[in-house]
Amino acid sequence: MSLATISPQKAKDLIAKGAVLVDIREADEHARERIPGAHHHALSRLNGSVGTSGNAVIFHCRSGQRTAGNAQRLASAVACDAYILEGGIDAWKKAGLPVAQDKSQPLEMMRQVQIAAGSLVVLGALLGTFVNPWFYALSAFVGAGLIFAGATGFCGMARLLALAPWNRKPAAPAKA
């Protein structure tokens, strides 16, 4: 079963009529930025049904890709009309609709991994060029780690970054 997509404005209108907005992003993403009033049910922890009291449910992620790719799973989690917010929270913001941000929360883990991996690759390339060719191995090691993470779903860098001091505080969002 495929879920219909709706525009941010149509979603806003449905929410005003009692529809429930459900954010399927991970807790760290939701803690940093969210649509006020959205319920949080991370896709990775979605087991069974999404308990809502609305007459319709609108699912959203950051860009709409995650919700579209999991439409069948999301549709089976509700017993009412369900939709996907076209373009996710990015489109919601672009439409000028309100979002709550908590900049005190750390960057999303995947962004931290991207920054760290990219930095290590550039560092390895620079050191390999200007210091010693053996430093190219650093770039190769990071690339191999990314391939391993993509193939297995285990990201050692994310596990390591989770231990960093800025990630140790709970990612509980402020009330919006």
Rank of each mutant, 00 (worst) to 15 (best):
S139L: 08
L161E: 09
M109S: 14
M1V: 14
Q72D: 15
S63F: 07
G128L: 09
A144N: 03
K169A: 11
A176D: 08
G145S: 06
M1A: 14
L46F: 05
P133M: 04
R111F: 07
K175T: 08
Q65S: 12
D90R: 13
A164H: 00
G124W: 09
E108H: 09
V78T: 03
G64I: 08
V20Y: 00
G54Q: 01
L126T: 14
T152S: 06
P36R: 00
D90M: 12
A158V: 05
H60V: 04
Q9Y: 02
S119K: 13
S53E: 02
P36T: 13
W166F: 05
Q114W: 11
I147G: 14
Q105M: 11
P106R: 02
Q112C: 15
Q9H: 08
V99H: 06
G88C: 08
K12F: 05
E26G: 00
G87C: 12
K17H: 12
I6N: 00
A56Y: 01
A77V: 04
N70K: 10
L146M: 08
T129V: 15
G87D: 04
L14H: 03
Q105G: 09
V50D: 01
G96T: 12
G156R: 05
A140E: 15
R32M: 01
A172I: 12
L43W: 04
F59T: 03
Y136G: 09
C61T: 11
M110K: 08
I6S: 00
L21D: 06
A174G: 14
Q105F: 06
W166R: 01
P133D: 03
P8D: 09
A144F: 12
D13V: 13
I89Y: 00
A27K: 04
M157L: 04
I24Q: 01
A176L: 01
D28W: 02
H41V: 15
L161H: 07
A176Q: 00
A4G: 12
G51V: 14
L123C: 15
F154Q: 04
K175L: 02
L160I: 08
A56Q: 07
F59Q: 02
A75Q: 03
L107I: 15
L97G: 02
M109G: 13
V22Y: 01
N55R: 06
E86S: 13
V121A: 13
A4P: 03
G118Y: 14
G69C: 05
M110H: 10
V78A: 00
M110F: 11
R111L: 10
A151P: 04
V122C: 06
A16G: 14
I58H: 04
H41K: 07
T5I: 09
K10T: 12
M157S: 06
